[in-house]
Structure formats: structure tokens, C-alpha cells
Design a binder for these strands. Structure first.
Lengths: 150, 150
DNA sequence: ATATTACATTTGTACATACAAATATTGTAA
DNA sequence: TTACAATATTTGTATGTACAAATGTAATAT
């Protein structure tokens, strides 16, 4: 469905506005079902994002600023986000010995286990999300988005 | 910048995952400065979205379910969102005479005035957001996003 | 050594969001 | 006409988010 119909726009939209809205709208339409799925595992999208970043560290700890830097949705309250993960036993938190201002955050075995359970579900969800486009179209789309941000 | 670099991914990402993340990431990168701009006018992105939908009604009232349906970010609490706009004098709310379950919401003159002030700023912001792409690329991008959602 | 500045995180506060339950109104069927 | 289901919105509660101020630590200059 064309974006104008999707949002039931009244008048003609200029190309820039249309594109900006299309990106936001498409993003939301993908996130909604994904977040609903995560919720069954007591995870928010942000928490999931943090767990994946921690797994990507392969044993190396991450501190809060690293997490913030890499998160898709930047948010000043990474502390409380990590609190939630800690309470559920999916991460560990300890003061860095070399620089006691820093906090080192690790993913736990339970956290890794949870991600393993989610991996196939997430892969399937992603595949389904983009199944209307061919690989070549997906490559084009990624290139355009990369260029748009550059 | 390629999305893998932007989020500092460790391993290779499959095309579906990459695309889904690219859309979310790009969307956020456009929203952040836009929301910061709106904030100077004491508006959230959602509130702005509602005001524009109401203007699009050209005098015809909208009820809550219409608003919800058309909003980019679906949200079950349109009531409270409208409360905020009401408190700032940008919308009016009255019970529908024909069906007293329904609430009719209108944009006020002040609300229209605010949007008029914002129009050129928003247009400029949108133009700047997508200035790295040619018109032809923008058309392609919109088509791909439309197709992805279809 | 002491003061100053920068850094990293936490906390307070206000606001936003999600979802379920409650309320009120309308339409329909027995 | 009463009861019941459907519709539209509001409210309660829990959780999430944004930003400024506070805290604690480290590095640098005086």
C-alpha cells in the first residue's frame, strides 16, 4: 500500500515529507509485532538490543557509554535498563578495577541461553518482515538507507 | 555509513536482519533531531502528528478511533494525548450529539496558527533529512518501502 | 597537596506509553 | 422492557523514557 493511503493523507505530499513519513511508518509497522513477540519473554526491544550488544562482546565487558553508543534507540537511562536485566539474572554488573568510575557489564549464561532460544524466532521474524522484497531489492534498499544517513 | 559500521556489528549479518535494523536505525536517526526541534514548541512527535491529522480534517471533527487509526505510532492512550493538547489550547473536545459515546475533536485557531509556524520549519527539516538522495532515488526508496509493507 | 575540570554513572522528577479494567452509551434480541 | 452484547472512551497501574542535578572518581594544573 502506498504511504499516502496508509496514513490517509488528504492532500498531495512532497517527496521529502513522504519519504520521512514512509521510513517512520514502515519502521513502526515492523517493530510492533516484533515487540509483541519479545514481550512473551519479558523483554523490551531495548533490553533485547542490550543483550545482543553484550553477546557481541564475546566475553569482553561493556560499560554504559559503550552500550549507549551502540544502541539503536539512544536513551539516557541505560542504568535503569541494565537494572531490569540484572534483576532478571541476564546480566552481571561490577565496578571496573582500573577505573572505578566505570561499570563493567557482562551477559550471564542465562542471558546467552535466552538469546539462543530467541535466535531462530528473530531470524524467522526478520525473514517474514522483508519477504515481499527480492534479495536484489533488499540490497538496493540498504544502500539507499545508508546513503540517506551519510 | 554502512549499517554494520553504524551499529558496530561484530559478525556478518544476514540480509533480512540487516534490513530490519537499517530501517529502525535510520528512522531513529531522523526522528531524534526532529523531536528536539518540536520540543522547543512544547510538542511531542505524537502530539504534532495528531494536530496534523486534525488539520487534514478541514473542519470536520475526528474522534479518538479515527486518530488512532491514522497515527504513525499507534498508541492506546490517545485520550491522554488529546488531554495535553487541550490543556495547551490547540484542540477542542466535545461529545458527539448523534452518538454520545463518541467524542469530537477539533483543532483550534491557535492550533492552526502553531502548525502554520511549523510548516516551513518541518519542510526544511524533511528536505535536509533526505538531501543525500536524488529525486529518482527517493522514488525508488518509497516504492521499496511500500512494497515491503504490502 | 589542593583545587579544578572532565568523566561515568546514578538518582529525582516529570512525562509518555501499554494494557487491562471500568464506565457509559447504543443497538439488538428475547 | 429488560437483558445482553458491541462500541467508544476513560481511568488505574505498571513500566519506560527524557533530562537535569547529584554523586563519586580520575586526571590535570596551580
Amino acid at each position: 500500500m502506498k504511504i499516502e493511503e496508509a496514513i490517509k493523507a488528504t492532500g498531495a505530499m512532497d517527496l521529502s515529507a513522504k519519504t520521512v513519513i514512509n521510513i517512520a511508518y514502515t519502521s513502526r509497522s515492523l517493530e510492533e509485532p516484533f515487540q509483541a513477540m519479545l514481550k512473551e519473554y519479558d523483554l523490551s526491544a531495548q533490553q533485547f538490543n542490550v543483550l545482543r550488544i553484550l553477546r557481541g562482546q564475546r566475553g569482553k565487558p561493556a560499560n554504559l557509554s559503550t552500550l549507549q553508543e551502540r544502541m539503536i534507540d539512544k536513551n539516557s537511562n541505560t542504568t535503569r535498563l541494565v537494572d531490569k536485566l540484572l534483576k532478571k539474572g541476564w546480566v552481571l554488573r561490577q565496578v571496573c578495577e582500573k577505573n572505578r568510575r566505570k561499570i563493567e557489564i557482562f551477559i550471564t549464561e542465562d542471558g546467552l541461553q535466552l538469546l539462543s532460544t530467541l535466535d531462530p524466532i528473530v531470524t524467522e521474524s526478520n525473514k517474514k518482515s522483508v519477504s515481499n522484497l527480492t534479495n536484489s531489492e533488499l540490497e538496493t534498499l540498504n544502500n539507499l538507507l545508508d546513503k540517506l544517513r551519510s
